[in-house]
């Protein structure tokens, strides 16, 4: 991840995609981003599989973690969406832990952060958007379109408000995807820049040691901050999905 040489900072090189898994990966355009997705998915499955393996009445640490993961997502679905939320629980669970493990894996050095790619987050946001719209139409039929017309407004304002409502509805995709992507990217750019600073400054001799140390300290703090952002952004994505699903199920 560090810059090549001491004269330039390649803050964005870390987001470059490469084929992974050698020749086979290259032939099917399987990238290191996808490899991290696989790793994240396997970690989620491993957490549940090895966590729940003892099937203990009184859970151990790993089982408690797996159960906590299950129950926190379940309670979020039921609280945000209502009793119907149980239907969407597997989806929200998958979404949250896919993003969470993707974010957290990115904090490790030399690991790729697939959530720092706008195409990935956009795909996830589109998935949520399509699901929410499909659920709304399935639940309410054509009545769903009344969602765009707030009740109790003068008819004169209706065309304007409908346009605003439609735009705000469509912009959910943008806000969902850009929020996650921008947060992850910004954090990793900052880590990269401070990492490059350390190398550049320490190359300047004794005068550079102090600022290099300072950069190192800042990077340490940033790593902690990144951990927070990783969890927070995954949570925000999942909770917004739940809120949108609530709107789809209940219409307002």
């Amino acid at each position: 991840m560090a810059a090549e040489g001491s004269s330039s900072i390649d803050a964005l090189g870390q987001f470059q995609l490469h084929p992974a898994l050698g020749g086979i990966g290259a032939s099917v355009n399987f990238t290191q981003s996808n490899l991290m997705m696989v790793v994240a998915s396997l970690l989620v499955l491993a957490l549940l599989w090895f966590g729940m393996k003892p099937r203990a009445m009184v859970p151990g640490r790993l089982q408690a973690a797996a159960e906590l993961a299950y129950e926190s997502m379940m309670s979020m679905c039921v609280e945000q969406i209502g009793p119907e939320g149980r239907k969407f629980f597997p989806f929200v669970f998958t979404l949250f832990f896919f993003i969470l493990f993707g974010n957290l894996l990115g904090v490790f050095p030399y690991f790729f952060t697939f959530t720092s790619h706008i195409m990935v987050t956009l795909a996830l946001a589109l998935l949520v958007f399509v699901l929410v719209t499909a659920v709304a139409i399935k639940e309410h039929g054509l009545h769903f379109f009344s969602y765009f017309l707030p009740q109790g407004i003068p008819m004169v304002l209706a065309p304007l408000l409908v346009v605003i409502e439609v735009i705000s509805y469509l912009s959910r995709v943008i806000s969902l995807s850009v929020r996650l992507f921008a947060n992850m990217m910004a954090g990793h750019v900052m880590l990269e820049v401070f990492g490059a600073f350390i190398i550049m400054l320490s190359g300047l001799g004794w005068l550079g040691y102090f600022p290099a140390g300072l950069s190192f300290g800042l990077n340490t703090i940033l790593i902690g901050f990144e951990l927070l952002v990783a969890v927070l952004q995954a949570y925000v994505f999942a909770v917004l999905t739940c809120i949108y699903l609530h709107d789809a199920v209940h219409l307002h």
């Binding site: 355009n29 990238t31 981003s33």
Partner: peptide, 10 residues
Amino acid sequence: SQVVWGAIIF
């Protein structure tokens, strides 16, 4: 292509 693979993995 990462999105396609991502969709499959997801």
